[in-house]
Amino acid sequence: MKVNCPKCGHNNDRDDIFCMDCGTKLEQAETEQAQASEPTPAESSVKEPSPWFAVIRAHAKPLKKGVYLAAYIAIGMIFSFFVERYRAARNVEDADQMLVYLLLAGASLVVLWGVFTWMTYRLWQAVQDGHARTTPAKAALLQLVPGFNILWIFTSFQGFAEDYNKLLKRRGLQLEPINEGFFLIMCIAIVASTGTITGFLAGVSSFDYTYVIYTALALVVISSNRAIDGVNGLLGRLGMASDPEDS
């Protein structure tokens, strides 16, 4: 092993006490070089990645199904009531009442969509095994972008059903898969109801949208019920076994 002189840089033998070129004492230089060659604690202790199920358990929590379903039904009925009031005010050409009920209907719709988006965020937390197509934050945030969210819902909700089923198959978990086709129908119903309501409020359609609203709401409730059951069942399985793939 060679020792470099700290003063002139000359390459000396390890047994040399003084630099053969400039005479500088080499004992300190050898000590410093030996310390520099030792691995740091961070280098010597490489952390193993956590198992996929440990990551999910650490971030995902069971969802309270009754709270979400009750919120959908209650807010949906309030929204429908305000829209009906708006229609009545428009029939008598009461501009002030039209504006009031339009704002109230819009506010209730925003709250309803907010609850749905928060649930979507919670659902995606449960399928983050390293293969999910999106993150919980991305799934929720893009669902709040006006206009684009109508298309994104096919990824954030119907895509969740697909990723959930793939996780079950990939990890060998014996749980009931989600009906992906039903989730697709729900997304289409939401798009249809949005277009119908927008057309009516804009005065370009006289179609009775009430049935469209209730149909879409019913599909949201049913699909949300299934999604929450699926996630809670998955989290229950992950919490019961040290390694779910062996159970």
Rank of each mutant, 00 (worst) to 15 (best):
E162H: 13
K2D: 14
D94F: 00
W52D: 08
N225H: 10
L219E: 00
C22N: 04
F182I: 09
Y121K: 11
V220C: 04
L112Q: 04
F183P: 05
E43D: 12
N12T: 04
Y214M: 13
G236R: 02
T135I: 02
I178M: 07
T215E: 00
I150A: 15
A54V: 12
L123E: 00
R87Q: 14
S193H: 05
I153W: 00
A137F: 11
G130P: 07
N232V: 10
P41D: 03
G236S: 08
F183H: 13
S45M: 12
H131A: 15
L151S: 03
S44F: 08
A107P: 01
K61I: 02
F79I: 15
Q143H: 11
P177Y: 01
E30A: 14
A29H: 04
L235I: 09
D246V: 12
Q128I: 05
F82C: 13
G159M: 03
E48M: 09
L26P: 08
A202I: 06
G236T: 01
N179Q: 10
L102F: 09
Q35D: 12
I197L: 15
S50I: 04
F116D: 13
G159S: 05
W118K: 12
N225Q: 10
P146W: 04
I185V: 14
T40D: 06
G130I: 06
S223Q: 10
D208F: 08
A70T: 07
Y86S: 14
F82L: 05
N4A: 11
V212R: 00
